[in-house]
Simulated assay, not measured.
Amino acid sequence: MPPILLVEDDFSYQRLLKKFLEKHGFEVEVAATKSDALRWVRERRFELVLLDYWLPDGNGLELLEELFTKNKHLPVVFLSNYTEVRIAVQAIKLGAKDYITKPVNPEELLQVVKEVCQIKSPEQQSSPTFYPGESQGFQETYALVEVVAPTELTVLLMGESGTGKEFFARKIHALSARQAAPFVAVDCGSLSLELAASELFGHVKGAFTGAITDRQGYLEEAQGGTLFLDEIGNLHPDVQAKMLRAIQERVIQKVGSQASIPLDIRIIAATNEALDIRGERNFRLDLYHRLSEFRIDVPPLRKRKEDILPYATYFIERSNRQFHKQVEGLAPETLALFQNYSWPGNLRELKNLVRRAVLMAKGPFLTPDLFPEGFHV
């Protein structure tokens, strides 16, 4: 079974989670500090890191960024108290695959670990199911998807983390003439500055220390299809310049090579915040205009209240299959709570809450007592 690194400074909690995962066949190493975790990652390869936020020599967000500079494909699941859900949302923005609220339910943990450990790299991820919403906000967004999909326009998806921007990107690809070609998703937030150009454009043998063979970049892997650049605002200005040239001239050059490779791809970009085209982060205005030939704003869940019940029902059905349960739906008082909540984590938060509640449910409906105390506000 895949080796896992558990980063948790609470010894009793650490021991409990380690024992549970080892019981199910996983090999688990533990670290109680940032420095211990970084040492483990230097010494061996892990398929998953379970990362708590509170650490004695820093915090989990800091460690997350340092881990991704060493291995941008390293799957990380964030552990946080429900009152810290905004921190967990930030972890997702930085590149974490998922988060689990504490106290951790062991069965939920096992399900998430099994799902995430199947993810090796962005290009190997299976296409997620596209489930339509019922709100006017969703219908207006989807109408724009249908309009732009058959064209070759670049698309910029704007929306908060967890609103489903990748789902819309995949749907644009599926409705386009490129549907039979690759859809390659890249999380720009997890690209290290040193290797971003190599990851995106490829490199030739000997281009830099460690380049022992030629390698295709993500743009070349997407030939004939669609390249989805998530969190595009995280691209370094030097890489932005290379990306602009690739889009304008429809060619790429691998790192260490002068040869030009013709490029036939469609680009869809996404960001969870307005691109800073004049401030300190200095996103190139010319690249922004190239990426935003057609802009789609994906509304947050709090502005799509009509979607809460159908999505909750969908997540209940999925969780029933995963956990072999028979939950029928939400209790009326739970639906009222859902409708009055602000959903800072959007659909991802809704999915996580429902999954946990289904796992813990004893009766046919999800009642308010199945949800964290911090949710009842």
Rank of each mutant, 00 (worst) to 15 (best):
M1A: 13
I4C: 02
V7C: 09
E8A: 02
D10R: 12
F11S: 13
F11R: 14
K18F: 08
K18V: 12
E27F: 13
A32M: 12
A32N: 10
A32I: 12
A32C: 13
L38C: 06
E43S: 09
F46S: 00
L48A: 00
L51R: 11
Y53F: 15
L55W: 07
G58Y: 11
G60R: 11
L61E: 12
E65P: 02
F68K: 07
T69Q: 15
K70S: 13
P75M: 04
R86T: 15
L94A: 08
I100W: 05
E108F: 04
L109C: 12
E115F: 08
E123T: 06
E123H: 04
Q124T: 14
P132M: 03
E134D: 10
A143R: 15
V148N: 01
T151V: 07
T154W: 03
T163V: 14
E166Y: 00
R170G: 08
K171G: 10
S176G: 11
A177H: 13
P182L: 01
G189P: 00
G189L: 00
L193D: 13
E199T: 04
L200R: 02
L200Q: 04
D214F: 10
R215A: 13
Q216F: 10
L219R: 05
E220S: 03
E220V: 01
E221A: 14
G224T: 06
G225N: 05
L227W: 06
F228S: 01
N234E: 15
N234S: 12
Q240N: 03
I247D: 10
I247L: 15
E249I: 09
I252N: 05
G256R: 06
G256L: 03
S257Y: 11
A259F: 13
S260A: 15
P262E: 04
I268H: 10
A270L: 11
T271S: 07
A274Y: 04
I277G: 00
R284H: 09
L285P: 05
D286F: 12
L287Q: 03
Y288L: 06
H289L: 10
L291F: 06
L291M: 07
E293M: 13
E293C: 10
R295D: 11
I296Q: 00
D297A: 11
R304S: 11
L309K: 13
F315V: 04
F323C: 05
F323W: 09
H324P: 05
K325H: 07
V327C: 00
V327G: 01
E333P: 01
N340R: 15
N340Y: 08
L347Q: 04
N352A: 09
L353H: 00
L353A: 01
V354P: 00
R356E: 02
V358E: 02
T367R: 09
D369I: 12
D369V: 14
L370T: 01
